[in-house]
Nucleic acid binder design. Structure first.
Length: 581
RNA sequence: GGCCCCGUAGCUCAGGGGAUAGAGCGACCGCCUCCUAAGCGGUAGGUCGCAGGUUCGAAUCCUGCCGGGGCCGCCA
């Protein structure tokens, strides 16, 4: 159930009845009518802007509409009080039974409470990570991985059919560099001095690859010319790198449905196909580009290239797809890849990219718009940098100094739960500070801990109640008498729980999983607050020693909060701890 | 030069058309005979960068400017 959409339905129904009764003109657009939680709890449980939104088109005073609407809504048993306030808000106070209904829904629906039909089963492709298969993943990839995985889970929960996809850039020049680098390590494994020339990858992680090459090929490649071994060594090294990357993702509990290979897509003729399609639309032409403004590259030369008319879709300049020598630019496989995704029938595409790829957003959107006739929206989520700290001091990453912080370093130190939650405590387009010490702190300063602690406290209550012989299994609590949940502090928690389904839809609409992290923090805060009220007012304790029935009632509320915390953390990929150690 | 992101409390950040703008940290004052005080309550703290505009209503949308960061190439 989604209480907010239920009540909005009641408002829309009342407005329709007013139209029939001649109190409103016909044909009004109701899409802007919203039912939201008011900022100030004193304003009631929910508020609707209906009267203000409709006043102008209906040519009526907002207060007049609001009053007529209030009169109709008052007849709804769920609405205890409807009063007009401010410039025309209609504040609604809900009957306590409504909150009891929310708690019961959470208990009966369990992990599915809040699941939405918003997506209507639409096929969404979430492409994320897509780190080059040339080395281990670093912190930046970590954030992208967590974000993409959580977003995918969120969209799944919101009713989309989600595919998690990794695009392997195994077709460009950089994998040949990888091959040459690995070959040097292969020579090293055979007792020769490696020549890690400028431009090759110097990382130690290639040493085992060199050894593996030796194990497979012995000395047979040593005196061969590059042309003889390049392809085999490249494929061998890519496979090794991808195995390493898969392991890293597994450490973070990130899973992929599809690993798409640039080389496979290119080999299948998708590039030519996509370019031909674009050409058929008149979007490909031969021409020369203006030199870039600002600092002019030293070797700038005007040359004719094959260009994609991305300016037709709002890009700043047209983009080259083919070099002057006829070979494809790096952009061409990207076109083919997105064409491939469109061809696979996705209704929506999402690309999760590093913020340094911001300059490609327009051309990617242009391509997707062109190739799908504007039917498939592409949302590009840019992931800002992660700034690492240790003891409050910035922790500079440098490949040269050997302080290159990998995904594995982070996860091994902080653990997957902490890493994931912290990475989601900031909007994707805001830079994130990640302090190794703060993140491991077990106090309320650490949001992960704070949320997990709320859940652990609940579990503690459940254990104690169970020991006391009170039936606290979910199906027992779901049929408990909830009419005793009338205290304002208890209703505050129920109100927060009721926001969960609405939050899911807002977060999913905006592709913003960070909203879940913030919400869960708030929910935990309300839970801790109610818990502590029990110190002063024993009547608010969840466990009422001598009264199993009342205990069941109150524990049902606590457990409903726990259901949401558990589900929410589940979407973020964080384990809801049952006890803190 | 162009494009993108950011600018909200002393600090770190939510909120991104609705009412008197929120949270955490830091500061100050309180709360353990009691389900985990690893927690809770309260006080103080604001020109939502600046200036226009749209709107019944702008921190939120539009334009310009200021300040910070990022990107720009036949590289990937």
């Amino acid at each position: 159930m989604n209480l907010f959409s239920d009540i909005r339905g009641a408002v829309i129904e009342a407005l329709a009845a007013m139209t029939v009764a001649g109190q409103l003109p016909e044909g009004l657009d109701m899409t802007a009518v919203a039912v939201e939680p008011p900022r100030d709890p004193a304003h009631g449980d929910m508020a609707t802007n209906a009267a203000m939104v409709l006043a102008k088109p209906a040519k009526l005073q907002p207060r007049a509409i609001a009053e007529a609407l209030a009169a109709r809504l008052s007849a709804d048993p769920r609405i205890a009080l409807a009063e007009v306030a401010g410039p025309g808000f209609l504040n609604l106070r809900l009957d306590p039974s409504v909150w009891q209904g929310v708690v019961r829904s959470a208990l009966t629906e369990g992990a599915d409470f809040g699941r939405s039909a918003l997506g209507q089963g639409q096929k969404v492709n979430v492409e994320f990570v897509s780190a080059n298969p040339t080395g281990p993943m670093h912190v930046g990839h970590t954030r992208g991985a967590v974000f993409g995985d959580a977003l995918a889970s969120l969209l799944d929960f919101a009713g989309y059919a989600v595919t998690r996809e990794y695009y392997i850039n195994d077709g460009g020049a950089q994998v040949e560099v990888l091959a040459r680098s690995a070959f040097e390590r292969y020579r090293e494994a055979n007792g020769l001095d490696p020549e890690i020339r400028e431009g090759l990858y110097p990382g130690d992680y290639l040493i085992p690859v060199g050894e593996a090459l030796k194990a497979t090929y012995g000395t047979s490649l040593l005196d061969q010319p590059e042309a003889a071994w390049l392809q085999d060594v490249r494929d061998f090294a890519i496979e090794r790198m991808m195995a390493m990357i898969r392991e890293d993702l597994a450490l973070l509990n990130v899973r992929m449905d599809v690993f798409a290979s640039e080389r496979a897509i290119t080999a299948s003729g998708r590039v030519e196909e996509a370019i031909t399609t674009l050409r058929g639309m008149g979007l490909i032409y031969d021409g020369t580009l203006e030199p870039p403004k600002g600092k002019l590259p030293e070797d700038w030369e005007e040359r004719e290239q094959t260009l994609f008319r991305s300016t037709a879709f709002g890009d700043d300049v047209d983009r080259p797809v083919q070099k002057s020598d006829g070979s494809w630019t790096y952009f061409a496989p990207d076109i083919a890849y997105h064409w491939d995704k469109i061809s696979r029938g996705f209704d929506q595409l999402i690309d999760v990219l590093g913020a340094d790829h911001g300059g490609y957003v327009k051309r990617l959107k242009a391509v997707v718009s062109a190739l799908s006739n504007g039917k498939v929206p592409l949302d590009v989520k840019l992931i800002q940098l992660v700034k690492l700290f240790k003891n409050g001091e910035p922790f500079k990453m440098s490949k040269r100094a050997g302080t290159f912080v990998t995904l594995r370093d982070v996860v091994e130190q902080a653990g997957p739960d902490v890493t994931r939650f912290v990475m989601l405590t900031r909007k994707n387009d805001a830079a994130l500070d990640f302090d190794f010490d703060k993140v491991l702190e077990q106090s309320k300063d650490n949001p992960v801990f704070y949320v997990q602690y709320a859940h652990a406290r609940l579990c503690s209550v459940l254990r104690k109640a169970h020991e006391a012989g009170i039936a606290v299994a979910d199906n027992d609590l779901a049929v408990a008498d909830l009419s005793g949940l009338t205290h304002p502090a208890e209703q505050e928690l129920a109100r927060k729980i009721a926001e969960w389904p609405r939050l899911i839809e807002i977060a999913a609409r905006n592709n913003e999983p960070h909203r879940l992290a913030f919400y869960l923090y708030e929910l935990a805060s309300v839970f801790h607050g109610l818990w502590n009220r029990g110190n002063e007012d024993p009547g608010l304790r969840f466990l009422q020693e001598d009264n199993p029935a009342t205990s069941q009632t109150k524990i049902a509320l606590a457990r409903a909060a726990g259901v949401v915390i558990s589900a929410g953390l589940g979407i973020l990929g964080v384990d809801p701890a049952e006890e803190m150690r």
